[in-house]
């Protein structure tokens, strides 16, 4: 059924007025939604950045395997081939004793004469890159049992640990935010319920003179939806400006940097508005279903 423009205007006006009829309830509901979405938005911003950071770390995921001195040089290509064929290994790079020493001297620079008298104490070495950071411990173990490999060394599996901590944090956040969203819906539906209650005389007369259910519901729907949207706009603005500022501060310490503001925030704001809309629509539907029966 096509709704007249004038009717939409009326619902908008009435719904807007409703917001002020019980101002404190409206304020409480909007604040609750705003706090909820602020937390949701902040977690999103954080997780997007951590994810991109861990992607960077993952890209260089690698560990070292040291070759026993007993393996003759001509056997090395065969060994490299064997390592490459291990499931989950992406690349294998060989670093010879000599090359290793050169790198070591580069790192030690002026102190390099410390090791000058020792000959070359370094073993031949392979650097293995893997596909999945979670598999490092397992692959390393496999590599250790390859004949001719003396020792493996990997970065104490910081990355897998970081990732699993992130998963736990994320799951906790999801549950927490889901709880807050339910609370936001509850507060909005409660506010709409009170408006319905304070306007019950008008509603009664509307029904008696033949207003349709849809028409009677219009303003309450608008009221709930507006609360949801306002509840989303506030944290959107705060987060957008806040992120811009923090990113600016972080950029002063070169190795660190956050993802570009529009790239992150345009999506986050969209998500927040969608959530606010959903909370508002749902909240008003719930109380109308309960309290606007014919």
């Amino acid at each position: 059924m096509a709704m007249k423009i004038r009717t939409i205007g009326r619902h908008g006006r009435e719904g807007f007025k409703n917001l002020f009829r019980n101002g404190w309830m409206t304020f409480a509901a909007i604040s609750a939604v705003a706090v909820t979405l602020l937390i949701l938005g902040a977690s999103l911003v954080l997780s997007v950045n951590i994810q991109s950071m861990s992607l960077n770390i993952e890209n260089q995921l690698q560990f070292n395997a040291y070759v026993s001195d007993r393996v003759p040089n001509k056997e090395l290509p065969k060994l490299a081939h064997e390592l490459r064929s291990i499931h989950g290994v992406r690349t294998v790079t060989f670093i010879s004793k000599a090359e290793g020493l050169k790198r070591m001297k580069q790192i030690l620079q002026s102190n390099s004469d410390l090791i000058n008298g020792l000959g070359n104490p370094l073993p031949n070495e392979f650097v293995l890159q893997v596909n999945n950071p979670h598999q490092i411990p397992q692959i390393a173990n496999e590599v250790k049992h390859v004949r001719g490999i003396e020792k493996v060394q990997y970065g104490a599996s910081v990355v897998p640990k970081l990732l699993s901590v992130m998963t736990i944090v994320r799951d906790t956040a999801i549950i927490f935010i889901a709880g807050l969203i339910v609370m936001g819906m509850f507060l909005i539906s409660n506010t709409v319920k009170i408006t319905i209650f304070t306007r019950r005389r008008e509603i009664e007369i509307m029904k008696l003179v033949g207003a349709t259910d849809g028409f009677i519901r219009g303003p309450f729907f608008v009221e709930g939806t507006l609360m949801g949207i306002f509840g989303a706009l506030i944290p959107s603005v705060l987060l957008y400006e806040g992120y811009r500022w923090i990113r600016h501060q972080v950029a002063l310490f070169p190795p660190f940097s956050l993802l570009p503001t529009p790239y992150v925030m345009d999506r986050v704001v969209l998500v927040l508005l969608a959530c606010g809309l959903f909370i508002g629509v749902w909240g008003s539907l719930v109380s109308m279903r309960k309290f606007l029966r014919v």
């Binding site: 007249k4 005389r201 007369i205 003179v209 207003a211 349709t212 028409f215 009677i216």
Partner: peptide, 21 residues
């Protein structure tokens, strides 16, 4: 009577027509 106290006489009557568009 069931009149709306905040509306005038004419508005009370018009209300019945407004809400049926």
């Amino acid at each position: 009577y069931k009149l709306l106290q905040q509306l005038t006489v004419a508005e009370n009557i018009a209300f019945a027509l407004e809400v049926i568009e």
